[in-house]
Design a protein around this nucleic acid. Structure first.
Length: 510
RNA sequence: GACCCUGUAGCUCAGGGGUAGAGCACCUGACUUUUAAUCAGGGGGUCGCAGGUUCGAUUCCUGCCAGGGUCACCA
C-alpha cells in the first residue's frame, strides 16, 4: 500500500510500468477527468508552427492549439519541457507552474506515449527553439503500455543521431504502429508509397483509362504462373482461388468495349517468402486497345521518368549507393542478344538438351527434366539479370515462357513481350496481347501438358476466357508492374517487408 | 525445404557453470528557458520454450518456437 498523490492505491510488487499507468488512469478518473475524451480542436500542426513562426510578429501565434503524443520529458521542478509529436513532426512544449497552477501537478501523471492537447502561445526559448508555451492542456488518451523511447541528438551540423533506436525487425513488423510512432523514416516510406500510387492513378485517369475492380475470388485462377491460395464458398459449396493476377478479367473488359482499363490491387501467391516476395502484394495491370508492346514501352518509359522527376526533381536516383538513371529512352535489348553477350552462346535455335548442357557448364542447377522455358529462365535470371542495373527493356521472349503473349510479327519462336529490369530485378512485364482464340487454346493446351508432367504452376485452361476471345478482342497492349518493388526502388528499401505496412509473419503463438 | 546467425529488464545491448549487468525508460527527492537536461537515491528479470548433463544451467548439449540472412522455390 502506498500513498500516491493523496490517492490511495495498491501497487503490487510484481506489477510493472503498465500497472502504474493504470493507476494513473484511475487517479485521473477519481478527479473526474476523462482520460479518453471525445474530440479536440487543433488549429495548427507542429510543422506549420515551426516553419511559419516569425520572431518579428509572434502575435500571429499567440493562440494556438496543437495535439499529439508525448515523446520526451524534461522535468525541472516547477517547469517542464516535452516534445509533442503529431503527424507532421515534433514540437517542443513548455509548462510553467506559475501559469498553470494546480493543473501543473497533473503533469506528474502523464507519461511518454500519452496523447495530449495543448493551448498556448508560441515563443522562442533562450536556446533558440520554437516552443509552445502552454496555457491549458488536456489529456486526450492515456497510454497504458510503455513504448520504446529513442533519443534524438543533433550534432553541430544538424545531423540526427538516434540513440537506442527501435530496431528489432520482428517487433517492428509485428507492432508496426509502434514502428510508425518512433521511426519517422518509416512514416516517410509509406507516405511516398501513397504518392507513387496516386501519381500512377492520376496519370492513367488523365489519359481517359478506366479504373476497374475485378474478382479476387476466382473459380479459375489465371494470368500468371504461380500456385494459388484456395478457399471455400459454403453456400455454393465450391472451392475458389484468390487471384494470382488480374489479367484475364481485364482482357474480358477490353472485349466488352472499354478501350483502356486498369486495376491496382492485391494479388496472392502461395509461394516462398523472402526479401522480394510477400504472399500478398500489390500489382498494377493496364490494358489499352489498338496498341502493341512498342507503344507500351514508351508508356512505361514516360510513366517512370515523369514519376521519378515528380518525386525527386531529378532523373537520377540512388538505390543501395548505386545511381540509377531514368532519363529517356531506356535501353532496349533483345533477350537472345543478352544471352549471347553474357554466355557467349547463341541460344536461339538450341534444343532442350543443348541448352541444359550449356546451363550446367555455366554452373547452374536444374530441376528434374526441365522444360525449355525453365532452362532459359534459369540462365537468364542467374547469368543475365544481375547485370541489368540501369533501366533496361528486355524484349522478345521465347514463346514457351509466355502463354498469353502474341507471336512475334517477324521472328519465329518468339513472342512480343518485354520486361523492364532495374537494379537486377523485374519491375514491369508487358505484351502485345494474344487475341487469336485458336492460338490461345493451343497455348493453354501446352500448359496442360506441363501440368500433367507435374508443373504445379502451369496455367489452367479458362474456357470462358477463350469464349471471350472468340467474341473478339481488338489488338491490345498490356502491362503489369509490381508496385511493391517499384516502391522499394524509389524509397531505397532492401526488403519488400519495409514497403508493406503489415507484412506476413508467422503467428507468434504456435 | 537446407544452411548460418540471433533471442538476457519496456527499448538498445554487455556478460557468462555458483544470488543477473549497463545506458535510456520507470519510481522517490532537488531543480521555473531545458533539449540525449542534470544531480542523488531506488524498483524492475521464467536470461525464447522444453528436455538432458551437473551438487548446481541463463551459461554446456539436444529438440522445438520465433526472427534475420544466404540458397532453393518463385516474377
Amino acid at each position: 500500500m502506498k500513498i500516491f498523490c493523496g490517492y490511495t492505491m495498491e501497487i503490487n510488487e510484481l506489477n510493472d510500468q503498465r500497472a502504474r499507468r493504470r493507476e494513473e488512469l484511475n487517479y485521473f478518473e477519481s478527479l473526474g477527468i476523462n482520460p479518453y475524451p471525445y474530440e479536440f480542436r487543433k488549429t495548427h500542426s507542429a510543422k506549420e508552427i515551426l516553419s511559419n513562426f516569425r520572431d518579428e510578429n509572434p502575435e500571429l501565434y499567440s493562440n494556438v492549439s496543437i495535439a499529439g503524443r508525448i515523446m520526451t520529458f524534461r522535468r525541472m521542478g516547477k517547469a517542464t519541457f516535452c516534445d509533442i509529436q503529431d503527424e507532421s513532426g515534433r514540437i517542443q512544449v513548455y509548462f510553467k507552474k506559475n501559469d498553470l497552477g494546480d493543473s501543473y501537478d497533473l503533469l506528474k501523471y502523464l507519461d511518454i506515449g500519452d496523447i495530449i492537447g495543448i493551448e498556448g502561445f508560441v515563443f522562442r526559448t533562450r536556446m533558440g527553439e520554437i516552443t509552445v508555451h502552454t496555457q491549458k492542456f488536456i489529456i486526450l488518451c492515456k497510454s497504458l503500455t510503455p513504448i520504446p523511447v529513442p533519443k534524438i541528438e543533433e550534432d553541430e551540423s544538424g545531423n540526427k543521431i538516434i540513440h537506442d533506436q527501435f530496431s528489432d525487425k520482428e517487433l517492428r513488423y509485428r507492432h508496426r504502429y509502434i514502428d510508425l510512432i518512433v521511426n519517422p523514416d518509416v512514416r516517410d516510406v509509406f507516405r511516398k508509397r501513397a504518392k507513387i500510387i496516386s501519381y500512377i492513378r492520376n496519370y492513367f485517369d488523365n489519359r481517359g483509362w478506366l479504373e476497374v475492380e475485378t474478382p479476387i475470388l476466382q473459380p479459375i485462377y489465371g494470368g500468371a504462373t504461380a500456385r494459388p491460395f484456395i478457399t471455400h464458398h459454403n453456400a455454393l459449396d465450391i472451392d475458389l482461388y484468390l487471384r494470382i493476377a488480374d489479367e484475364l478479367y481485364l482482357k474480358r473488359l477490353i472485349v466488352g468495349g472499354f478501350e483502356g482499363v486498369y486495376e491496382i490491387s492485391k494479388n496472392f501467391r502461395n509461394e516462398g517468402m523472402d526479401r522480394m516476395h510477400n504472399p500478398e502484394f500489390t500489382a498494377l495491370e493496364i490494358y489499352v486497345a489498338y496498341k502493341d508492346y512498342f507503344w507500351v514501352m514508351e508508356l512505361v518509359e514516360d510513366l517512370l521518368n515523369s514519376l521519378v522527376k515528380y518525386l525527386f526533381n531529378n532523373e537520377i536516383i540512388v538505390y543501395n549507393n548505386i545511381e540509377i538513371n531514368f532519363s529517356k529512352p531506356f535501353a532496349r535489348r533483345k533477350m537472345f542478344d543478352l544471352f549471347k553477350e553474357y554466355t557467349g552462346e547463341d541460344l536461339k535455335d538450341k534444343t532442350e538438351e543443348e541448352l541444359l548442357k550449356i546451363g550446367k557448364k555455366l554452373g547452374l542447377d536444374f530441376p528434374e527434366s526441365p522444360s525449355r522455358a525453365k532452362i532459359l529462365d534459369e540462365i537468364f535470371s542467374e547469368i543475365v539479370q544481375p547485370n541489368l542495373i540501369q533501366p533496361t527493356f528486355v524484349i522478345d521472349y521465347p514463346i514457351e515462357m509466355s502463354p498469353l503473349a502474341k507471336k512475334h510479327r517477324s521472328e519465329q519462336g518468339l513472342v512480343e513481350r518485354f520486361e523492364l529490369f532495374i537494379n537486377g530485378f523485374e519491375v514491369a512485364n508487358a505484351f502485345s496481347e494474344l487475341n487469336d482464340p485458336r492460338d490461345q487454346r493451343a497455348r493453354f493446351e501446352e500448359q496442360a501438358k506441363l501440368r500433367a508432367k507435374g508443373d504445379e504452376e502451369a496455367m489452367v485452361l479458362d474456357e470462358d476466357f477463350l469464349y471471350a476471345l472468340e467474341v473478339g478482342m481488338p489488338p491490345t497492349g498490356g502491362l503489369g508492374i509490381g508496385i511493391d518493388r517499384l516502391v522499394m526502388l524509389l524509397t531505397n528499401q532492401n526488403s519488400i517487408r519495409d514497403v508493406i505496412l503489415f507484412p506476413q509473419m508467422k503467428p507468434e503463438n504456435l
